[in-house]
Design a protein around this nucleic acid. Structure first.
Lengths: 106, 106
DNA sequence: AAACTACATCAATACAAATTGATATAGTTT
DNA sequence: AAACTATATCAATTTGTATTGATGTAGTTT
């Protein structure tokens, strides 16, 4: 299996891709991504939309930020989050690449 | 947030999509998908490729099967698994759809 | 039918992640 | 500066999931 023969624990492309997919595969984080689809938004609004406590939303945003899926910028008291579309595209592309073999493209 | 206002727990599209993404976002399961990318394979070969115990591979295959990502067919003693590419495409499409807003297509 | 092979299941364990509640911090308003 | 607001962090708890080891089962070979 040449596609993962020399994998080495945490450095494997599969480990990294899995971690990013995992970051994205939580129900609440998917909803956050949906909220941020076409606008930036502050934490308190998202908490209201999602009907979730503020600290929980903060936590999920932290996870997304750690995986470079969202960015934050502070404006006064509030912190506005936005999507890093490029990173999302990368995730989609990696996933597509390992699921679509060449042979089936005819 | 009209995109999830009427969500009802386990029936939400976000819950379902999250569950499927979760099924796919495990390192070993990504490797299994990679193995099955362009051929079907039996459990014992996959276990050897992955250097994982057979029962663990069986477990991961079960998770993938529960989410309709792989199919199994028995041939004699062996069980051959194959990818359900259509389901994978669905996952990719759902994910693409919530991440790519219309406005950005100009 | 006994021994063997490939796979699945089950119970136990270990590990990781989501959620909650309490508190801290930074900036704002009065 | 005191009170307030928005957010982040921390510790504790709960929940979920991966992994392991032992055992069961179906089909095969001798």
């Amino acid at each position: 299996m040449k596609c993962f023969r020399k994998d080495n624990k945490k450095t494997s492309q599969f480990f990294k891709a899995g971690a990013q997919l995992k970051a994205v595969s939580d129900e609440n984080r998917l909803k956050i991504i949906c909220i941020l689809k076409d606008k930036e938004e502050c934490v308190c609004n998202m908490a209201e939309y999602l009907k979730l406590p503020q600290n929980l939303v903060s936590h999920h945003l932290k996870v997304l930020k750690e995986h470079n899926i969202v960015s934050a910028k502070k404006k006064g008291l509030m912190v506005f989050y936005s999507l890093n579309k490029k990173e999302l595209d990368n995730i989609i592309q990696f996933f597509s690449s390992i699921t679509n073999d060449e042979k089936s493209k005819h």
